[in-house]
Amino acid sequence: MTNNLLKGSKITLTSFKEEYMNKFENWYNDVSFLRNYDMISAFPRAIDELKPMIDDVKKSPDKFIFAIINSDDNKFIGVTGFEDILWNNGAATIYIGIGDSSNRGNGIGTEALNLTMEFGFEELNLHRIQLTVLSYNTPAIKLYEKLGFKKEGTYREFIHRDNRRYDMYLYGILRSEWEHINKY
């Protein structure tokens, strides 16, 4: 267990604040971001459409959202959290989105997801964390496997993009597997 829950060497996870909405709106108008972040059509969204979505997460008993803040310059660079928490089963779906491409591929996603997993297992007392990822998102797949997630299934030809069908993979990690990887 870490002494600084939600704080790593490169980033800190904080509450999602109103001041982040403009940047969040920019990401929701970036098709390449949306095509990796969500399964719905990459449809641009305005702040007035995004604010109720964030408010819903904040009020929900089965969802959490964190803002990912760069420790060097204190800038908002992404979101992570949990949805579909089944408290009685100790299971949840994790997600992450790093907004600007300049913040991808440099370890920020690894650190943010690892901190989120730690929060899930240590603070929320989860037994299982799962996620879904589209088959064409190879950087995300490498990240998830590096952190110990195991491929558990395939939703064949799940999504239609650019006149092609792509599979969606289900990945999961159990608390015991995470503890084995993160021995203190």
Results as ranks from 00 to 15, higher is better:
82 F>S: 00
132 T>M: 08
152 E>L: 12
89 N>T: 03
166 Y>N: 11
131 L>A: 03
97 G>F: 01
160 H>V: 06
177 E>G: 04
55 D>I: 04
171 Y>I: 06
90 G>P: 11
29 N>I: 03
132 T>K: 05
29 N>Q: 04
149 F>R: 06
177 E>L: 06
36 N>M: 11
94 I>E: 00
135 S>M: 14
72 D>V: 09
114 N>H: 14
5 L>H: 11
102 S>T: 09
164 R>P: 13
170 L>R: 11
164 R>V: 14
129 I>E: 00
73 D>K: 04
76 F>K: 06
84 D>K: 03
13 L>W: 05
91 A>F: 09
124 L>A: 02
163 N>P: 03
105 G>K: 03
106 N>S: 02
67 A>C: 07
155 Y>K: 08
95 Y>K: 00
85 I>L: 01
135 S>I: 12
37 Y>F: 13
117 M>Q: 02
132 T>E: 13
39 M>H: 11
23 K>G: 08
179 E>H: 12
31 V>H: 03
172 G>C: 08
79 V>E: 10
158 F>G: 05
10 K>F: 10
118 E>I: 05
84 D>P: 05
41 S>M: 09
135 S>P: 15
9 S>D: 15
103 N>S: 13
94 I>Q: 00
91 A>G: 00
90 G>W: 12
75 K>P: 08
125 N>F: 13
168 M>S: 14
9 S>Q: 12
18 E>P: 05
135 S>G: 14
49 E>K: 04
125 N>C: 10
106 N>W: 05
117 M>P: 01
147 L>V: 04
129 I>Q: 00
20 Y>H: 03
73 D>G: 05
131 L>N: 01
133 V>W: 00
5 L>Y: 15
17 K>G: 07
163 N>F: 15
41 S>L: 14
35 R>I: 12
7 K>H: 15
10 K>G: 06
36 N>K: 09
100 D>T: 03
44 P>S: 04
123 E>A: 12
68 I>H: 02
122 E>A: 10
127 H>I: 08
7 K>S: 15
4 N>L: 10
108 I>K: 12
70 N>F: 08
150 K>S: 14
11 I>M: 12
34 L>R: 04
151 K>Y: 11
143 L>N: 02
125 N>W: 10
81 G>C: 01
51 K>T: 04
85 I>G: 00
65 I>L: 08
35 R>Y: 09
31 V>M: 07
60 S>D: 02
